[in-house]
Design a protein around this nucleic acid. Structure first.
Lengths: 115, 115
DNA sequence: TTCATATTTGGCAATTTAGCCAAGCAGATG
DNA sequence: CATCTGCTTGGCTAAATTGCCAAATATGAA
């Protein structure tokens, strides 16, 4: 006989690796400071100290954010003299923001409509 | 006189609202299960129970993931009879993945080159 | 009304993440 | 060599996130 479950008891199917890999990248981008740095880097490589000024945060904090983005494969870096320069590993990230802005506009429209 | 700081003492400039708003959306997308559900919804609306089967997770977990996506403005929902149907609020999310895949390919290439 | 189905919500423990300070390290410069 | 600059790392605490269970809610059917 078959026992009738109240609610499907959550058979734990692992999420496909494809989505786990994508999520790693998206997650790395999901922070205001990191997003701002990526936006700056879309205009060309720059050193950590410049990014620090831009972010207005502690140098160690900036460095850790950069490490997150690098680990995700979003940035590459290179040391020249005393400075370390970071750049986008993939130029497509430039238009990545277009879609995000689309969601924002849509959301703004909805909020406006609710007034 | 001006005291010389060892390292710039992290003058705490707030990150512009633009990036905070964007990060909210990106963060909402930064989870394997949520990414999978968004991918499914890019093919057309569907009900929570179908997404649950797809995700293979607890119903309450799926529901909370959907709430995160809705709060971010990524999804809309509508109740019809017993079921609740979710859909993308912005079709652009469909090509959003193109860029992410670009980063993945680039990363795969780099890893392969390191062997 | 009573029951079943579909979904949301509250609560909670385990894990992860963020940001600060202090310390470390490598390259340049005196 | 000693010292400065630019950056990274370790350690720590506070806060956020995840996922499960149990309970609540809403709609439809008997």
């Amino acid at each position: 006989m078959k026992t009738k479950a109240k609610t499907l008891p959550a058979k734990p199917v692992p999420v496909p690796a494809r989505y786990r890999a994508r999520a790693e990248i998206v997650k790395a981008l999901g922070h205001p400071t990191r997003l701002m740095m990526v936006d700056r880097l879309a205009a060309g490589e720059c050193c950590v100290c410049e990014l620090q000024k831009l972010a207005g945060a502690d140098m160690s904090t900036v460095s850790k954010h950069l490490a997150v983005l690098k680990r995700a494969g979003i940035l590459e870096n290179e040391k020249r003299g005393l400075k370390v320069f970071y750049r986008l590993s993939c130029p497509c990230l430039t238009d990545f923001f277009g879609c995000i802005e689309g969601v924002l506009r849509k959301r703004a429209g909805r909020l406006a409509a609710e007034l």
